[in-house]
Nucleic acid binder design. Sequence first.
DNA 1: GTCTATAGTACGATAGAC
DNA 2: GTCTATCGTACTATAGAC
Lengths: 201, 201
Amino acid sequence: MSYLNTQNHSNTVLKVLNSALVLFVEKGFFNTSIPDLVKHSGVSTGSIYHAFQDKQAIAETLMSALLQQIEREQLQILNQHGRCKARFYALSKWMIDTAEEHPHVMQFILTARHKEFMPDLKPICSSQPFITLRNVIHQGMLEGSVQEMDLMVAAASSYGGILRLIQLGLDGMLERPLNTYLDEITQVCWKSIAIDQTIGK
Amino acid sequence: MSYLNTQNHSNTVLKVLNSALVLFVEKGFFNTSIPDLVKHSGVSTGSIYHAFQDKQAIAETLMSALLQQIEREQLQILNQHGRCKARFYALSKWMIDTAEEHPHVMQFILTARHKEFMPDLKPICSSQPFITLRNVIHQGMLEGSVQEMDLMVAAASSYGGILRLIQLGLDGMLERPLNTYLDEITQVCWKSIAIDQTIGK
DNA sequence: GTCTATAGTACGATAGAC
DNA sequence: GTCTATCGTACTATAGAC
């Protein structure tokens, strides 16, 4: 199933964005030509340029749409869990599930060299979804469940492990499916910033 | 100072490789044209194509040279420290120092979309330097200083935090210089996989 | 809004003098 | 080995019919 929502975009735009997601991740932005997009999406050159100003605008729209969708899903998770540790586990599970169900999405967000084709864009880690991840850790410090330390250090250590494992999974370096590592990785990542030594469930 | 060793390569090759490192990281592989390389390196088109088969070969040679140099530096560190924890700390310090002194090197290794322009290359995390990092963690399990767990999970959790913080630093998301975070980040990253709760130095 | 056909350009790579 | 000049190509983007 497509990850992108059908609400904000026309059918043509959506077809192009979905093809762009696949092709940009698999071949790279610069190795994907407009003719490639035409073939993969079934939309003609003219229609593509009617819907988007240029090739770069396709990437920008795609990025923006993905980040919006991710924000929406994060908010749902935050609504279901109140405390830092529960939120951290739920967000980690969601990241790992997304990496398995929509590997292209995760790959595009995590490893696409956005700077290379969107030079004006701020680094991905300054986008709202990453701010939300950090805010949860900050909440933990206020709650007393996370050790007082530099927020960037805490965020890097906790989510860094999750994201690194996801990257290893996307690169085909893991023997088992990603989700089978969920419990183990979230436990050790949480342990790195938890305030006490009782790790029990 | 240049990161690359002058032993294996001629002066012309070295000039091109150094320019390629800078330009590939700052503008990206596909946004760097041969004329760009000519301007930046002072070497003419003809000489570049005399030294390298094509543009991709420049990237491949660069990657190979960097990995070799990194391997050499890692071996030095392993020779200076015997136990897992000491090696982990020293390797982490070395990664952070390298990121500060040679940001282009770190950026090229960590974030360059190698797959995009070197489709045949294995993922970077299967290269020898990354294997060495994992081996050190494995050694820790045998020694009894690191908890028994899946090796990939342990490596992701421990080095993932370090690498994530380095990425944040390279992206300009940190307030202070990277090396000022060294003690804090290595401590929490080690804590995530350490076997007992005594974290003291 | 959608399409085909094509203009214009910039690039990778080569030829060939020195 | 190094250089300049240039070829051929493949791309992005546009023009204009429907």
